Simulated scan of single mutants.
Amino acid sequence: MTISDQILAALDAALENGYPHDYDRPPADIAREIHDWSGIDGFDPDAPDDMATACAAVNDWRWINEKP
Rank of each mutant, 00 (worst) to 15 (best):
N17G: 11
D49R: 10
I7Q: 01
I7E: 03
E33A: 03
A52K: 04
W37R: 00
P48E: 11
M1S: 09
A57L: 05
D50F: 02
N65F: 08
L15I: 14
P68A: 03
T53N: 06
I7T: 05
R32L: 13
Y19E: 15
P68Q: 08
G39L: 01
G39D: 12
A52E: 04
P45I: 00
I30K: 00
T2Q: 13
Q6H: 10
A28P: 05
G18D: 10
A13I: 09
L15R: 05
Y19V: 13
D36N: 01
N59H: 04
P45H: 00
W37G: 01
A57Y: 02
D5H: 14
M1W: 11
H21G: 05
A57E: 09
D41A: 08
T2L: 12
D5V: 08
W63K: 05
G42Y: 11
L11H: 03
A14P: 12
D22F: 13
D60N: 03
D50R: 01
H21L: 14
D46H: 05
N65G: 02
Y23D: 12
D46A: 09
I64R: 11
A9S: 14
F43V: 06
D24T: 07
T2E: 12
F43Y: 08
E66H: 11
A10W: 05
R32Y: 12
Q6E: 10
M51C: 13
A13Y: 14
E66Q: 15
I30E: 03
N17R: 04
D12P: 07
G18I: 03
D36F: 04
P20I: 12
Q6I: 13
P26W: 13
R25K: 08
P45V: 04
G18A: 09
D5C: 04
A10D: 14
L8A: 08
P68M: 09
R32C: 15
D41C: 02
D5W: 13
K67N: 06
W37H: 01
P68W: 09
H21P: 00
M1E: 10
R25G: 04
A56I: 01
S38G: 07
A14Y: 07
